[in-house]
């Protein structure tokens, strides 16, 4: 008997004033899996994430998390169930120093739930988490205003904010975009570590090479529809995918 899926999406559709962003999308996610979600620009990947996390309400369809219908829930309620995401456009709390940025997720009711109401010192916890994603401990960088951080650190901060919530399912929206090869290489181990801790992860990526190396399964979207699904190798070979990425002639 197969275990019941962690996340189940069924017949999901969304249109924005006539534009069909997502069309009849169905997929399932098993606990502990790392799913790569890929597709050309504008294929509806981010919309799919917004739908799952409640930032956008679906026109049709159903989303269940641990057999619980979460369709149309407010984002903050969904987060409390254990789905955390990062944003493609990282916008930190610019006024605050980097480590103070972490206080806000640590203030979350979700964290309160997990720790039984004992927060401890949030500042210390914040620094621990930042170290985990590659902020050097005892360096100035964690104390810098978030508005002064370089892109690489902003992405790490964004990831740390999601980790702080101790989610069961993490959705990473183009975490690698805008990063150098070396930076990507330093973040990959963090993600692998998260997997060892048993987290389920959905990654949206354009950096296919890195993604294919770590993903268990890939789902390909185009024009809001799922055009292929399978292991990295299967997807690479699929004609539909080649067509979507390389154009009709290929």
């Amino acid at each position: 008997m197969s275990p019941s899926p962690l996340l189940r999406i069924f017949g999901l559709s969304k249109n924005f004033g006539g534009v069909q962003a997502i069309n009849d999308l169905s997929m399932e996610l098993v606990e502990g899996e790392l799913l790569g979600l890929i597709g050309p620009n504008g294929s509806g990947k981010t919309t799919a994430v917004n739908l799952i996390t409640g930032f956008v309400k679906p026109t049709e369809g159903e989303i269940t998390f641990r057999d619980r219908d979460i369709t149309g829930w407010a984002p903050y309620k969904i987060v409390r169930l254990g789905i955390a995401r990062t944003f493609q456009m990282v916008k930190p709390f610019y006024q605050l120093p980097a480590y103070k940025n972490m206080i806000i997720p640590l203030y979350s009711p979700r964290v309160k739930q997990m720790t039984g109401g004992k927060y401890g010192d949030r500042d210390a916890k914040a620094l621990d988490l930042l170290e985990e994603v590659g902020f050097e401990r005892d360096a100035f960088v964690a104390y810098k205003a978030a508005s002064a951080l370089p892109q690489g650190y902003l992405k790490r901060l964004e990831l740390a904010k999601a980790i702080a919530l101790n989610p069961d399912l993490m959705i990473l929206d183009e975490l690698f975009s805008g990063l150098s090869l070396a930076e990507v290489a330093s973040i990959v181990p963090i993600i692998e570590k998260l997997r060892q801790e048993g987290k389920t992860i959905i990654m949206i990526e354009h950096r296919l090479k890195e993604l294919f190396r770590i993903a268990d399964r890939i789902v390909v979207l185009n024009f809001g529809e799922k055009i292929a699904e399978g292991t990295s190798d299967e997807v690479m070979e699929s004609d539909a995918v080649k067509k979507a990425y390389l154009g009709a002639e290929a």
Partner: peptide, 24 residues
């Protein structure tokens, strides 16, 4: 205080605060 930081966070980026499971 941490409570105040959440308020400031709402001013900076309310979506990100929502995404921390906080009812803004």
């Amino acid at each position: 205080s941490d409570f105040g930081l959440v308020l400031k966070g709402i001013n900076d980026n309310d979506r990100s605060v929502m995404n921390a499971g906080i009812n803004i």
